[in-house]
Write a protein that binds this DNA or RNA. Structure first.
Lengths: 342, 342
DNA sequence: TCCCGAACCCGAAACGTTTCGGATTGGGGG
DNA sequence: CCCCCAATCCGAAACGTTTCGGGTTCGGGA
């Protein structure tokens, strides 16, 4: 139905070859000829057929996003990241395809599937650090960008915010408010970010001359419920705590609710800091002090690295630590003497 | 690099034609032959090249999602919808492409772009009812599904929840709790859902013999800030109000905050009901009573209709009203005598 | 013995591009 | 007048499939 090169050739009176060369801006075509051809193309509403193009030039102009974890897919997070990826893809005239898989098979199988679908590379999100799959990745000859999993190879890299720094600045924030007994509710171990945030927490404490106590650390699973349990547990074991840093906003909100249910005032009796800055962080009461990661630029960066690898086979991928910043809101405040709060 | 049909032919000793027919399950190939060919294909790790396939069979196996409004893209909403679309696409072996555009040009132009990219149809979200674009849509010969914009044609339909019913059940809920002075904070007029929800609100009132007062209706723009202003405005003009129905959770939360800032207790003095059931609805305090729309099945349905249109040229698209259900939570309660609340 | 159909297989064309390797002009220098 | 080069243009092959229109073989009925 749509017009083809042949149609344009017929209408303009030149050969298919010349039309192709004219429309692609090659030099060996007369300026007059080019104009006529462009005119004809416009009249016929001609657009090149991408399938045919890709078939002959073995270049692909599409990237894919594999989302393995449907839980995290449902938060606003991934939407922002997709948003960034879309914009970056658009500026490079790339398409963005989305895939949902529960598990990734072998790396080779995945690469074949990608190639078959015409992808030049893929971003993978939601991978757990305990997947065997990860080990195969660095060797793979197919451009891959991971989200929050540290893998690097000639055709593979990853994007992440600097979780260590982020967690550290959360602790610093609390310490600078006078807190000395700061607990942490962490995410599950299978997430790389958990390890990083824990490390940041520890570094923050050390930096302020505070001691690291195992009993101050509770391992949850990023869920609200685990945040609730974490707060309960931490306070039962350490009634002296005046601050809690949670490795996700969802856990922080769980903690918030639990603390308030226990009759504690936030931030009067105890301060809470989250991580992520999801939209609800600003809607809870008190609004959550948290570490903000900009998922939009995150997505843009992931797509940018991927496309660079695809377009330039010699490109050496590059890991960039995105900054994340503290957003002070109502849930954190200076230490006060017990009970003395309005 | 990947194996082609020719490779499989060479290895198995049959012709390209036979290999193709064998792999595609045609009947006129010997069972032994088929087995050998399948074996060879497996050994070579053969996967058909989608580009070539699509080039010759003019069938496409991809659908697209155009997102026009980046604001709404950023909520958890669209992520759930995409999630549903992905699953539906996957079960039909379709790809899902994402596009971001600020504005859609003419319908014809859009169709050409879609075809050029190999799409068989598109879902369009974030369209405003005042776009001229909409008028062209029913006539278009390309499968299209709209989100929350009522357009129907031989190759076009739309998905939506039953906003009238949803709004009505919100009002019924409040009325059954004894409320008789119920205000509404609506979204902006350019959204079709605003009109529908307003109508549902009115129907709900009438059904319970309550009067419709213009001063009880405030038109916002779906933002939290407009919810805040709406609450302030409504109560200033109508101090007798004991309940507010907001046409989005975000506005409901804005209203909630404003009411609390004004010293009113929710639900003690005044009840609030939202619409959407975004994730933060459950995290605010009190948790928001709201009308839940299941965006996952929403997405699935959109994709299902679209794919049906693509695969069966004779298929007459179908608009289905998805149900939406009231989720009673803490922000709504029975009317009480003024001031008598703990 | 001959013919016919079933079962199985294959060659070649087609889809819409890009690109390699020329072919055709016209003009200038020797 | 001949040669060569620059400027333009074009034919045909190739990319990896599917499918149309056959072709061959074999067995059985007439």
């Amino acid at each position: 139905m749509p017009a083809t090169l042949k149609d344009v050739a017929r209408r303009s009176g030149f050969s298919v070859t010349t039309v192709s060369r004219a429309l692609n801006g090659h030099s060996d075509v007369n300026i007059e000829t080019r104009k006529k051809i462009e005119q004809a193309a416009r009249e016929l509403n001609y657009f090149p057929n991408r399938m045919a193009q890709q078939l002959v030039t073995r270049k692909t102009n599409a990237i894919g996003l594999y989302s393995l974890d449907r839980e995290t897919f449902q938060n606003q997070f991934i939407a922002l990241m997709i948003s960034g990826m879309m914009d970056e893809a658009t500026t490079h005239d790339f398409n963005l395809l989305l895939f949902a898989t529960q598990r990734l098979m072998t790396a080779e199988e995945m690469v074949i599937q990608c190639k078959q679908r015409g992808l030049g590379g893929a971003v993978i999100s939601g991978l757990r650090t305990d997947e065997a799959f990860i080990a195969e990745l660095p060797a793979v000859e197919f451009p891959i960008v991971l989200v929050d999993v540290p893998v690097e190879g000639p055709r593979a890299t990853y994007v992440s915010v600097n979780n260590v720094l982020g967690a550290r600045s959360a602790v610093e924030h609390l310490a600078s408010l006078g807190h000395t007994a700061i607990g942490m509710i962490n995410g599950h171990d299978a997430a790389w970010v958990s390890q990083e945030r824990l490390q940041g927490y520890k570094e923050g404490l050390l930096q302020h001359g505070l001691q690291i106590k195992d009993s101050y650390i509770y391992t949850g699973d990023f869920s609200k419920e685990s945040g609730r349990r974490g707060a309960e547990h931490l306070l039962a074991a350490n009634p002296e705590l005046t601050a809690i840093f949670a490795a996700s906003d969802l856990m922080a909100v769980g903690a918030l609710e639990q603390l308030q249910a226990m009759g504690l005032e936030v931030p009067g009796h105890i301060s809470v800091v989250g991580f992520d800055d999801q939209d609800f962080a600003n809607h809870v009461s008190p609004p959550l002090t948290t570490i903000r990661q900009d998922m939009y630029v995150f997505g843009r960066l992931a797509a940018r690295e991927l496309i660079a690898m695809i377009e330039d086979t010699a490109y050496t991928p590059h890991h960039v630590d995105l900054p994340c910043t503290l957003v002070p809101r109502g849930s954190s405040g200076p230490v006060e003497k017990q009970g003395g709060v309005d």
